[in-house]
Design a protein around this nucleic acid. Structure first.
Lengths: 334, 334
DNA sequence: TCTGGGTATGCAAAGGTTTGCAGTGGCAAG
DNA sequence: CTTGCCACTGCAAACCTTTGCATACCCAGA
């Protein structure tokens, strides 16, 4: 039903190759012919079939972007930045969501391959070896993870976690809980490593709780546990969990930050809207999205330049952290 | 570099058509041959090229989903539901974001055409005539808008707006402000129409403010204006704006709901997290996403069944609404 | 008049797959 | 031994473009 290049050629009395050139190399065709072809194309509603074109040229001008959970407000700024960067180079971004499921992740890479020129793999939960294997099928740039041999862009969450723990111990907290992220998360491991080291340095106790769902609910669910172990401060894997935790503690009657201080990670826009406003580690998500697109597109086929970009993070102190309570610790007496 | 069907055929000593059938019609090939082909394919890392396949079959098994703003928490539940519905039918969803820009919207439809079997157009800002025109290029299902001749799924926002206004007038409010949505939004027009009618019925005054950006900032920006006109209640185009407005009023020293009552629309998960918790009109976004996918896929080429689905909405009363203040109205004295 | 260069267009192969049709061989029924 | 069916496989066209090469023409220079 939709018009093909052949219909336009017939209608304008030229060969299909001329029609093709009218669109992809206009300078090669006589201005007069060109305008006639254009008129016919317009009239027939012709649009070049991008799939067929890609079959020849090997370029789809599309980029796939796979995220773990599109409902997590961490991702939209990254997505938007990537889209904007892509648009400037005449590319389009196709976003898909994996529901935090590694199997879906793998399937999506296969589905996207050949329909895109490359895939931005954001916060993957797959194993490194699987990622490497998939990268032979379609160019990959990994975000929020380091995989040897593959281009990647990560935020320096280790530094962020260190700053957060130092902030807390500096406020006098001696027992910090760490709400871990989901299984398979590189970021979660990094945070844990750095937080553990920072706590040791400050001679404070650190208790790891998790793995958890990186959602509001994942935070709420640990409120009881946080109170039980008597931690006076918490570093959460992300803001969503931190916010959930505040809610959970609130319904247990525990006040933040008077009784428990909480630090999130990401600095999603929501963290400025809650009461108390959230102290958090700001991640440059927009820069990450842009950088990933650049890395994918820059070195066309020159895939040897597997740069690893690390972006700086920053501690943003708001209202959810305060001095450690002076009284006896909040252990539950049973 | 990546293996093609031809490579597999050569390696396993059969014709390419046999390889093709091994994947797309396994019952037609000898089990022995099949396993040999499968082994070779596995060994070579062969995956059918979906773009080439689509060229023949006319089916890509992809669906495009265009949303106005991926950062708006209204969309993720819809996206997730659509993805889930699609996955059950062996389809994939590609999401793209338009930044509320009609021009980008149009461009994206063109870009997606031929790479997907249909497009879900969510909260479009384009003109109806343009949408109709685009629907000749690729099957379209419109969400949050009614376009004659096209399948669509909408939420009954008119009913929701009516309930909201009745709720407010029932609390004694005589002057309600309506924070309009973005230009080109069908939903915004519907809300305005219904709210105006409901206010008239209750013999209350209704002032329309806008159009506005449908974001938190769009709400904050109208706080001053809301106070100036002396409205004691506000119905906002969506929750994000309602939340922004609460923030804005807060920084002006106006308390919610004691001095001004606020109702949002959408019931995004965030509306349960703010203080005060938001009274809002719940939209069945998940059901909308599922319905849209169903409509697109159900009647394959039978596009005459241009059903228009309307989903019910519901008023959720929380803490941001209360009785109208009894004192004199809050007009600014200059 | 011939040569050379440039411009505009046509030709046909190529890209990776699907699929209707035709062909092969084996086997059971007659 | 023939016939017919069946299961399997090969052949080649088709899908819609792009692109290297060839062709045709025109015009200027010698």
């Amino acid at each position: 039903m939709p018009a093909t290049i052949r219909d336009v050629a017939r209608a304008s009395g030229v060969h299909i190759s001329t029609v093709s050139r009218t669109f992809s190399a206009p300078h090669l065709v006589n201005p007069e012919t060109r305008s006639r072809v254009l008129a016919c194309a317009e009239h027939l509603g012709y649009r070049p079939n991008r799939a067929a074109r890609a079959l020849i040229t090997g370029r789809t001008h599309n980029i796939g972007l796979i995220v773990a959970d599109i409902a997590n407000p961490f991702f939209p700024p990254l997505i938007k930045a990537a889209e904007s960067a892509a648009r400037h180079r005449d590319y389009h971004i196709f976003v898909t969501d994996t529901n935090e499921d590694p199997a879906v992740e793998e399937e999506l890479v296969h589905a996207l391959a050949k329909q895109v020129d490359g895939v931005l793999l954001c916060s993957p939960r797959m194993s490194n070896s699987l990622i490497e294997q998939l990268s032979r099928e379609v160019p990959l740039v990994v975000i929020n993870r380091q995989v040897t041999g593959l281009p990647s862009v990560v935020m320096d969450v280790a530094q962020g976690a260190r700053l957060a723990v130092e902030h807390l111990t500096g406020l006098g907290h001696r027992h910090v809980a760490l709400l871990g992220g989901p299984r398979g998360s590189w970021t979660s491991r990094e945070i844990r490593r750095a937080a553990t080291a920072a706590a040791r340095t400050a001679d404070a106790e650190l208790t790891v709780l998790g793995p958890n769902q990186p959602t509001e609910h994942g935070g709420t669910a640990q409120a009881e546990q946080v109170r039980r172990i008597g931690a006076t401060a918490v570093l959460a894997y992300n803001d969503l969990m931190a916010i959930g935790l505040i809610e959970g503690l609130d319904s247990l009657g525990v006040r933040v930050p008077e009784e428990v201080s909480i630090v999130g990670i990401d600095d999603i826009s929501l963290s400025r809207l809650t009461r108390p406003k959230l102290t958090t580690v700001a991640n440059p998500t927009g820069a990450a999205g842009r950088a990933a697109v650049d890395m994918l597109l820059q070195h066309g086929d020159d895939r040897r330049t597997t740069a690893q970009v690390t972006l700086q993070t920053e501690l943003v102190i708001r209202d959810s952290t305060g001095p450690a309570p002076t009284g006896k610790p909040h252990t539950v007496k049973e």
